[in-house]
Amino acid sequence: MTPLSSQATPLDAGWDIEQKQVLKALDRRQGIDKGFSWLALLAVIFSLFVLVVLLVDILIDGVPVLSWNFLTSFPSRRPEAAGIVSALVGTIWVMVLVALFTFPIGVGAGIFLEEFVPDSLIAKAVEINISNLAGVPSIIYGLLGLQVFVRILFPITQGRSVLSGALTLALLVLPIVIIATRESLRSIPGSLRQAGFALGATRWQVIRSHVFPLALPGILTGVILALSRAIGETAPLITIGALTYIPFLPELSLRGLQSPFTVLPIQIFNWVSRPQADFHALAAGAIIVLMVILLLMNATAIYLRNRFQK
C-alpha cells in the first residue's frame, strides 16, 4: 500500500510515527480481522456439517419406508406392516392441547407480570423462579406430572392419558412462553404506553389496542418455539407412563382426552431400542415425519409473524 503524504507535524510527539510503520501495523490488524472471520466461518461449517450428516443418514435410512401405509398403519411386531398412525395422531392431539393450554396461560401470565405488577421484591422473586423453571430438566416435570396429573387428578385425567401428557408438557414449556411474552412486551417503547395513558386510556385499553398487537409477532414466535420443544420431548412422557404400543386411536371427543396415548418421539425411541435393523429404518422414517411437522410449525410461525407485522 502507498502511504498518503502529509506535511502536518503532530502536536503530540507520540503521534510522530512513520506512515510505513502505520501501514505495516494495519496489515497485521487486517490479518487478525480476516483470521477471526475464518474462525467464525469454521464454526458455522462444523455445525452445519454435523446437521447435514445427520439429515443425510436419516434420509437414506428413512425415505424407503415412507409410504401411505406407514402413515396409516398401527405399530406391529412385523416391521413391514408397522406404521405410526397412533403416534402421529397422539402427537397432534397432545400438541393441540399444549397450545390451547400454554397460549392463554403463558401469555396472560407474561402480560400480568410485565404490565400490571409493580416492580417489587416479590415480582423479582417470581421472575427469577420462572427463569429457573425454564432450565429445570424435563424429567423432573415428568415426575411432577406423574404425581399431580396421573395420580392426584386421576378422576379428571383417567391416569396416563392424552390430557395428563398435554398438561405435563404444558407445564414444561410455560416458562418459555412467559419469558418470550415478557421480552416481546418489553421491546415495545414506553412512549407508546404514555401516549395511550395521556389520552385517558386504562392499562388494559393501552395494552389491548397498542402494545399487544405490536408484541404479538414476538409472542407467537415464542409460543411456536415452545411447542417445537414440547413436540420432541420424550422423557417426561415416559415418566408419566405413556404407552409405547397403542393399537387404536383416541376418540375425537372429550372421552378421547382420557384415553391412553403415545407420541412420535416415544415410538421412535421404542423402535431404535430394538435389535432388528428393519425397525431402525422405521425409526428413521418416523424421524422424518416428526421433522416435517416441526418444519411446518416453524413455517407457520414465520408466516404469522410476517402477516401480523404488516
Binding site: S191, L192, A195, G196, A198, G200, L214
Partner: peptide, 16 residues
C-alpha cells in the same frame, strides 16, 4: 388524564 392532556417530547403517534 382525560381532563388534562399531554403532549410529549418525542412525537409518539400510535402505530395505526
Amino acid at each position: 388524564r382525560r381532563r388534562i392532556g399531554m403532549v410529549f417530547q418525542k412525537p409518539n403517534p400510535f402505530t395505526k
